[in-house]
Design a protein around this nucleic acid. Structure first.
Length: 461
RNA sequence: GAGGUAGUAGCUCAGUAGGUUAGAGCGUCAGUUUGUGGCACUGAAGGUCGUGGGUUCGAGACCCAUUUAUCUCCCCA
């Protein structure tokens, strides 16, 4: 028997890690619920054709596919061999793989909305917190199995939704106390406008991919990439000039668009402006850790976005991490599954990256990983019976308590309690049992005192 | 999918130019002492040196493959 192992890019989570993750999840859940979102869950696997073609060429490659069962059935061999040939050619074939692991939460949600359209009440607001899987090569902040928390609103075009989602981002990171949060916003329509401005509508994807790299490769790098992607010098010049407009000068870009009568670009600017105006009304004046910045170079890879797009980073110098959240509006995601004219907008939180950032900056509360509040030392015989009665009473009060299950030596039990991080030790020996009270040791102060069970309860509550 | 770095006890690592029974600290376990944890002391367990080949009289060290981790590109949360 070889050493046990787990698949590449997956992890076991210790009790401490799970507690910390739950801290994040509970906090987000509370915000989502407060904003009127309802929870749903979807299966870990989807039909492969539900997912294929939704995430771009690169995305398709990263979908974990599941091999069909029963391929050894002799009557299927002919089909299976043909299917394998197709797969070797780079095509998918349902006779070999017809299911795949969930790649994100947005496409399954679109599928969900279409399947449940007659029972949903629109506008429908849902949140979803589940793992997703990507066959990417693991590296820092990149796992093959990780959790996303999404909240989406479908069935309404109102930009109030965009403003609310920006509120949710900033409120969540405020409550999590993560510093230096930068929320960048842009509009796909502005990007379309830029493409139209230089008569390169067919090169929209190439343009967005190239300018998205501005902060990474610099202006010259972007120019080079635009050239490589087939744009001429005039077009490249226009693009560079437009995206270099100071980010808060929507007016300036609007003039450029108006001069050439680029309707879609003008609309993108108006939407961004309205979104921020609504957001201004919603914003919490206590926020001191985040800011919103308009960034014309923000592109976002997923091909289905059509309107306002957003991405969140922690730009604290002490952390180096890709985006910890992203989202945007998609006008026709359900159209892919046959339900036309249903617009949606949503954002995603990358739980594992948020966790990594918080761990690195030591932002988890000290007591987040403490479970048991008190432990009763077991001294055996009649004391054990009395200890069980005390245990029961404490648990009835909702105090997380355990009784050491064996009457081991005193120092063993003390050591166990200390190493577990349990803050209170309850000592019950003959004297305590006879007087129907307890002795309590507080590890923080190192002091101990005798008290009644009622006093014990009020101490621990 | 392409490339760089790494893999020695549970953890962090040492192991000189390949040479006899592979080491340390921490942790674990047993015990001593402190009225019951943290401190100190005594002792013990624990490694087929990621895996599989190869070179060599001899390999933890060299070569190849593979796997895992980590980083860059790509792309993303």
């Amino acid at each position: 028997m070889s050493k046990p192992s787990i698949p590449q890019g997956t992890r076991d989570l210790t009790p401490e890690v799970v507690r910390k993750r739950q801290y994040i999840l509970n906090l987000l859940r509370h915000i989502f619920e407060t904003c009127g979102f309802q929870p749903i869950e979807t299966p870990s696997m989807e039909n492969l054709n539900t997912l294929m073609g939704k995430y771009g060429e690169e995305g398709d490659r990263l979908i974990f596919k599941i091999l069909n069962n029963g391929l050894n059935d002799a009557s299927k061999h002919e089909k299976t061999r043909t299917a394998l040939e197709n797969v070797l050619q780079g095509k998918n074939d349902v006779n070999l793989t017809e299911r795949a692991l969930r790649y994100d939460l947005t496409i399954p949600f679109a599928r969900y909305v279409v399947m449940h359209q007659h029972e949903l009440i629109f506008p429908f607001r849902r949140y979803q917190m589940q793992p997703v899987w990507r066959a990417d090569r693991p590296q820092k902040g990149r796992y093959r199995e990780f959790w996303q928390c999404d909240c989406d609103i479908v069935g309404t075009n109102s930009l109030i939704n965009e403003a609310e989602l920006l509120y949710i981002y900033r409120e969540a990171f405020y409550q999590l106390k993560i510093p230096n949060i930068l929320v960048r916003v842009n509009s796909r329509k502005i990007l379309s406008g830029i493409a139209e401005y230089c008569s390169a509508q067919d090169k929209l994807t190439d343009i967005t991919i190239a300018i998205d790299k501005l902060d990474k490769v610099g202006k010259d790098g972007v120019i080079k990439e635009l050239n490589e992607r087939g744009l001429n010098d005039t077009q490249v010049g226009d693009i560079i000039r437009l995206i270099n407009i100071e980010t808060n000068h929507l007016d300036h870009l609007e003039k450029e668009f108006t001069a050439k009568n680029i309707t879609i670009g003008i609309e993108g600017i108006r939407e961004l402006r309205d979104t921020l105006a609504f957001h201004e009304e919603l914003k919490n004046n206590s926020w001191n850790n985040s800011e919103i910045k308009i960034d014309f170079t923000l592109a976002r890879g997923l091909s289905y976005y059509t309107g306002v797009i957003v991405e969140v980073n922690c730009i604290d110098p002490a952390v180096q991490m890709g985006s910890i959240g992203g989202g945007g509006r998609y006008d026709d995601l359900t159209g892919l599954f046959g339900l036309k004219n249903l617009s949606g907008v949503g954002v995603s939180f990358g739980i594992d990256r948020i966790y990594d950032v918080m761990e690195q900056l030591q932002l988890f509360p000290q007591d987040v990983s403490i479970g048991t509040k008190a432990i009763i030392i077991n001294t055996g015989a009649a004391n054990e019976i009395y200890a069980l009665q005390v245990l029961k009473q404490l648990r009835e009060q909702g105090i997380a308590t355990e009784l050491f299950p064996e009457a081991l030596k005193f120092d063993k039990q003390m050591k166990y309690a200390f190493n577990r991080g349990i803050p209170y030790v309850i000592i019950i020996e003959d004297e305590e049992r006879n007087q129907q009270n307890v002795r309590v040791k507080d590890f923080n102060s190192g002091k101990q005192s005798a008290m009644s069970i009622e006093a014990l309860i009020s101490t621990l509550l």
